[in-house]
Nucleic acid binder design. Structure first.
Length: 574
DNA sequence: GCCGTTTTCGGCCCGACTGTTTTCAGTCG
């Protein structure tokens, strides 16, 4: 039984209990238990007798989980579903609509789903309910409109584009002393719901006025002295932007507070509590002196708590507090450490630029080396190379090397791992390559055993150096394929295979969490590559570096930081 | 419902904003 399945039932339970008006802390307890199950590295069903050891799981939730494991469902949930319409929790996704509102709508107007809610609002039946009015009714209609039109989350690069546009306007406002991105986008999370800024100003009213006058604003969700919430449209992307307005002497505290994550902030507050203080977005309050200590810089805020500055990418409560306290924070990899891209496509397969253009662009970025790795013969949709074409390409690479002596070009391939785990080129050809990347591009739906065996078999080939985009996920579009990551990590260690972190913002594969695990538990090495299909693709390396940082990777963990000499050595497979 | 190096009971983050009110409930982050 999958953890996801169990977590899903716990989430449903929490949603329905919340609508029923159950104690919110109880609801939160179910949600916390659901998150613990979701994030568990081991199969919950296999540690059935030790559930209570997990944080957030006690007697009550453990009993529910055991019931799910033994009979496949939860009686309490089935009972709740009989009492409440099954589609009711969907309404929780509507912005501005919460459990209390949903409960009232159901009790008073027998509204059970999105369509009925829309109909009731259009017929103006909602405004006459106690506590409701015409504005609330209008908000409901707008929320439904948005919900059906606008995705809930966006890819990081899209959110960054929107943020840059807003940033350009903020830079022009003279009442703003400084500002910075905050929230999940500052932590470089792989997908983003909305964009947060913290702005330091002595004139919040004027700044708020200027912000809502930005031409790209499509909606003003809220506007006060400390906060402006807007919806902007940039290049067809419609996103919410929250801008917090604080006094310059509180900027550091506010930046920390609004950068999160929520879980990290909880840990920070706990630490402050131990020291006898209270943390808020305005500073650290000392109840003995009744003074609030203010911090213009984030580092000062951390220092007051006896901590070094923690990079935003680490602030997920994945051990950063413990390591910071012990003075053992990692020295995270930086873009400046990166010396060359090892996964690139050209006109030979499905790329749109020549080998020369790609090499030239790489050289202009200051790279010392690249690898040309076009697709192999059976990937017909991507124009995979026949063996003859491979030889042709090698000749051309030799030519380009003579034209561009300043950059090393490796002769490589991205060879398909066929459904049975064999490779799409014969060993005799792979043997001649400087670099062999193997990856899965077909039969994504094989069961876990088959898929795991397939990848393990590829790793056992003595000429395969790298497994590219190892879990095959497409963010917001396609789940990772079923694969036992512990088995492939273990085999990677045994065979000396390197895992790719594909920097394409639709992939970011391996994920931050898997990177951390592969490094800490298996001591693996990684390669960060853009998989660029055109010269513009090189710039996406920043998303790879950011994800690597979120995975706690340091310079020495990533072979793209090696000198060419070191790289050649690393590519000798034992 | 969960949790405890101040607690096995009494907390669980809490302040801002909106829309409905005429002092506050609901939502959000």
């Amino acid at each position: 039984m999958k953890n996801k399945y169990i977590a899903n039932i716990l989430h449903q339970l929490a949603d329905l209990l919340e609508i029923k008006g159950e104690n919110t802390f109880k609801v939160q307890a179910y949600r916390k238990a659901a998150r613990t199950v979701e994030n568990s590295r081991v199969a919950i069903a296999e540690i059935e007798d030790r559930l209570e050891e997990l944080s957030g799981i006690g007697k009550g939730t453990a009993a529910v989980i055991r019931e799910i494991i033994s009979i496949g469902h939860c009686k309490q949930l089935e009972e709740l579903k009989e009492q409440l319409p099954p589609d009711l929790p969907d309404l929780l996704h509507l912005p501005g609509i919460g459990p209390k509102t949903i409960a009232t709508l159901y009790k008073q107007l027998q509204i059970t789903n999105l369509n009925e809610l829309k109909a009731a609002a259009e017929k103006q039946e909602i405004r006459s309910l106690p506590g409701f009015g015409p504005k609330k009714e209008q908000k409901i209609l707008e929320a439904i409109e948005q919900f059906s039109k606008r995705p809930e989350r966006y890819h990081l690069h899209e959110a960054r584009r929107v943020a840059e546009k807003v940033q350009a306007y903020l830079s022009e406002m003279e009442e703003i002393e400084r500002f910075e991105l905050a929230g999940s986008i500052r932590r470089w999370k792989e997908t983003i719901k909305d964009i947060d800024f913290v702005v330091a100003t002595r004139d919040p009213i004027v700044v708020a006025e200027k912000i809502i006058a930005i031409p790209e604003v499509r909606q003003v969700v809220g506007q006060g002295e400390t906060k402006v919430s807007i919806v902007v449209e940039v290049e067809g992307i419609v996103m919410g932007v929250d801008i917090r307005l604080v006094r310059p002497d509180q900027f550091g505290s506010a930046l920390h507070h609004f950068t999160g994550s929520k879980e990290h902030n909880v840990r920070i507050r706990q630490r402050a509590k131990q020291l006898g203080w209270k943390v808020s977005e305005y500073g650290i309050y000392d109840p003995e002196t009744h003074q609030t200590m203010k911090f213009a810089q984030e580092a000062q805020f951390f220092a007051q708590l006896g901590l070094p500055w923690i990079p935003p990418e680490l602030r997920e409560d994945r051990g950063e507090m413990e390591e910071a306290e012990a003075g053992r924070l990692p020295t995270l990899i930086r873009l400046e450490d990166y010396r060359g891209d090892l996964h690139l496509h050209t006109l030979y397969s499905d790329g749109t630029d020549t080998i020369y253009s790609m090499a030239k662009a790489a050289q202009e970025r200051g790279y010392e080396y690249i690898a040309i790795t076009d697709h192999s013969r059976s990937l017909k949709v991507a124009g995979g190379l026949s063996i003859d074409e491979v030889y042709e390409q090698w000749e051309e690479i030799e030519q380009v090397k003579r034209q561009l002596p300043g950059i090393e070009i490796l002769k490589g391939t991205e060879v398909d791992i066929l459904p049975d785990g064999t490779l799409d080129y014969p060993d005799e050809l792979l043997k001649e390559m400087d670099l062999v990347i193997a990856s899965v591009h077909s039969q994504f739906h094989q069961d876990e055993k088959t898929m795991t065996r397939r990848i393990v078999k590829a790793m056992e080939n003595p000429y395969v150096h790298i497994i590219a985009h190892p879990t095959g996920r497409l963010l917001l579009r396609r789940d990772p394929y079923e694969v036992d990551v512990d088995v492939i990590f273990r085999h990677a260690r045994e065979t000396g295979t390197i895992f790719e972190l594909n920097a394409n913002p639709y992939r970011l594969d391996l994920s931050d969490e898997l990177l951390k695990r592969a490094k800490e538990e298996y001591g693996l090495k990684f390669t960060i590559n853009t998989d660029a299909h055109a010269t513009e693709g090189f710039s996406q390396v920043i998303f790879g570096i950011a994800t690597a940082r979120r995975g706690w990777l340091e310079k020495q963990d990533v072979i793209n930081t090696y000198s060419f000499h070191q790289l050649k050595n690393a590519l000798k497979k034992s």
